[in-house]
Design a protein around this nucleic acid. Structure first.
Length: 593
DNA sequence: TGGGGTCAG
DNA sequence: ACTTCTGACCCCA
């Protein structure tokens, strides 16, 4: 992002600072030995010419992330574009690939990939005899013998997805100035891991065969097996530790996290997968216990085998929570706390206006402002500083504690000044929550976080199932898939699909982005899941959105236009004129029966 | 629903 | 000195 704004930075080592730490840095800085989350002092020592920019305010990153995401969404037909953090994205391009797959003779010559079902001229030409970009495993030749290989349909789909990925990467660089790295495969897990290869600005297609035959593992298994166990998305620090302990046997050293840096993890996916007795049941025993996820063993076993059934999610209209936090060297008095709460709360109210309060351009009368969602709950979290020498050492470390309360309706006021709202919220709500967390003395905090959550969405035109183009989309997809159904009769249901996902790091620096193209290939799967999803989307949005739509929309607008003082609904937190409250309450009573 | 844990970037 | 500033999802009572 910084590089895109100022290309001269690309050749300089650049780091983004939060407090005393370089939270991320560009490739030039990494080339010189810098790493993420390194102390400023060490970084400067290692690289005196390091250019440092302040990254404590994330607004610019949020804006760039949203812009990037919107750009990528414009390429999709199904709007399945899922963000992971601010700089990674998955695209499910199954439908685009399926549509084009029927019209392209892969394996020879020039072909056309159509990007718009309504305009055959919109698209790009490509060489249907090659996979675009890098492949896993590497191979000598780029020419494809599509018909001669064991999984020709899958090869065709991944080939199309690879060219689509290249096209999108080029457009992204031309039009937005962001480079990206992409992985292309049949699910989110595999495409994400493939996207880690060939950084900073290439792409990797995980090549067929995907199934094992005559004792040979498929490529996804070989690919997964080579990864350190802790590198698998979904297997974090705790799970990896438990798995290592079981494989290696429990010794004191094994519990030292410093032994397992990036490349030092001695335990691979293959070590775990092939351990005697390994399977979902043993994994459940190893990883389960109070508090752990249901069916965790089955899920992890799937990951070890390259299996991931999770769908690429469409972006939600509003976040599920918004929080602001800061860390402190010392925070020991009530007045210090109050001062910091005022600062945090001011940022939080601003964030609410940015993320929850947008133009309603669907209104016939023109643009109006309205709340997209009302958070019902406010939460205050703190992190008490480690008490020196107290408690054994490893057990009571830097955990957060929190208290929550209903969010008062006055924060939605559009008339009152933000600073007045902030003062009221801190004095009337947050300070008493703080007292519930800590007494008036005897604490020292290293962090405070203020969060609003429990969003109640107002109705919007983005609600799945509402858009006029949704029905049309599915009809189109049906047609595009007809040919496939016939041809795929004898293909087992496990046959993969074609999907694409992308990730970018514009967020941090524009150092690179990765996008990952994921290919779905199971048509038999696509049919029921498309039908099921469509039905679910329609019914659930009708049920939940209709309930709140009239209330909140009207309440918000009346308040915005006519009211100086709103009255708070204690059920949902909406604010509206007093005369509306009786009808509003009736609505709740009827609606919640 | 409140409080906490894990995972991710 | 497992740190920064988040956000998503899961579990239990």
């Amino acid at each position: 992002m910084f590089e895109a704004a100022n290309p001269a930075l690309k050749s300089l080592p650049l780091g983004v600072q939060q407090k005393q730490i370089i939270v991320t840095c560009n490739y030039e800085a990494r080339r010189r030995g810098l790493r993420k989350l390194q102390l400023i002092r060490e970084a400067k020592e290692m690289c005196p010419e390091l250019v440092v920019v302040n990254g404590e305010n994330l607004s610019k990153f949020r804006d760039a992330s949203k812009e990037l995401y919107k750009f990528l969404e414009s390429f999709t037909w199904n709007r399945k574009v899922e963000r992971l953090g601010m700089d990674e994205v998955w695209l499910d391009v199954t439908d685009i690939v399926a549509y084009n797959e029927g019209m392209v003779r892969c394996g020879n010559g020039n072909a056309w990939l159509c990007l718009d079902r309504d305009d055959p001229m919109k698209g790009f030409g490509f060489d249907a005899g090659t996979i675009a970009g890098e492949k896993y495993p590497k191979s000598e030749t780029n020419r494809m013998d599509v018909e001669g290989c064991p999984e020709p349909e899958l090869v065709r789909r991944l080939l199309l997805a690879s060219h689509l990925a290249t096209h999108i990467r080029h457009k992204l660089e031309e039009e937005k100035g962001y480079t990206a790295t992409v992985g292309i495969s049949t699910n989110k897990l595999l495409s994400k891991l493939a996207g880690n290869m060939h950084k900073p600005k290439n792409q990797t297609t995980l090549m067929p065969p995907y199934s094992s035959r005559d004792g040979q593992e498929g490529n996804p298994q070989v690919f997964m097996d080579g990864h350190a166990i802790g590198k698998i998305p979904g297997i974090g620090f705790k799970l990896a530790q438990k798995l290592r302990n079981h494989i290696l046997g429990v010794t004191a050293d094994i519990n030292d996290p410093s032994l397992y840096g990036d490349n030092k993890d001695p335990i691979t996916v293959k070590d775990v997968r092939t351990y005697p007795g390994m399977g979902p049941q043993l994994l459940d025993r190893l990883l389960g216990g109070p508090g752990s996820e249901k069916r965790l063993g089955a899920k992890v076993w799937g990951l070890l085998n390259g299996i991931d059934d999770s769908e690429v999610q469409r972006a939600k209209r509003v976040p599920t929570q918004i929080s602001i936090e800061d860390s402190y060297g010392r925070l020991e008095t009530v007045s210090e706390v109050k001062k910091e709460l005022l600062i945090l709360t001011t940022s939080l109210i601003h964030r609410m206006h940015i993320d929850l309060f947008e133009d309603d351009d669907d209104d016939l009368a023109g643009k109006r402002k309205k709340w997209l969602a009302y958070p019902k709950t406010i939460r205050l979290s703190t992190r008490p500083r480690n008490i020196e020498g107290s408690i054994s050492h490893n057990v009571y470390m830097s955990k957060r504690i929190s208290r929550s309360a209903p969010l008062p309706g006055f924060v939605f006021s559009l008339k009152e000044r933000v600073d007045a709202i902030v003062v009221k919220l801190v004095n009337e709500t947050l300070m008493s929550m703080f007292r519930r967390l800590h007494g008036s003395k005897g604490w020292n905090l290293s962090l405070m976080n203020v969060c609003v959550t429990n969003m109640v969405e107002t109705a919007g035109d983005d609600t799945p199932g509402r858009g006029r183009d949704i029905g049309r989309m599915f009809r189109h997809q049906e047609e595009a898939l007809k040919a496939w159904r016939v041809e795929d009769r004898d293909v087992p249901p496990e046959t993969p699909n074609t999907t694409m996902s992308m990730s970018e790091e514009a967020r941090k620096l524009g150092e690179e982005k990765a996008y990952v193209a994921k290919g779905e290939d199971s048509i038999l799967k696509a049919e029921p899941s498309a039908g099921g999803d469509a039905t679910r989307g329609l019914s659930s949005s009708a049920a939940s959105a209709d309930m709140t739509e009239v209330d909140y929309e009207d309440g918000g607008e009346w308040f915005a236009e006519e009211c100086d003082e709103g009255e708070l609904c204690h059920i949902c937190g909406a604010v509206m004129p007093s005369f509306a409250m009786a009808a509003h309450n009736r609505f709740h009573i009827v609606g919640t029966d």
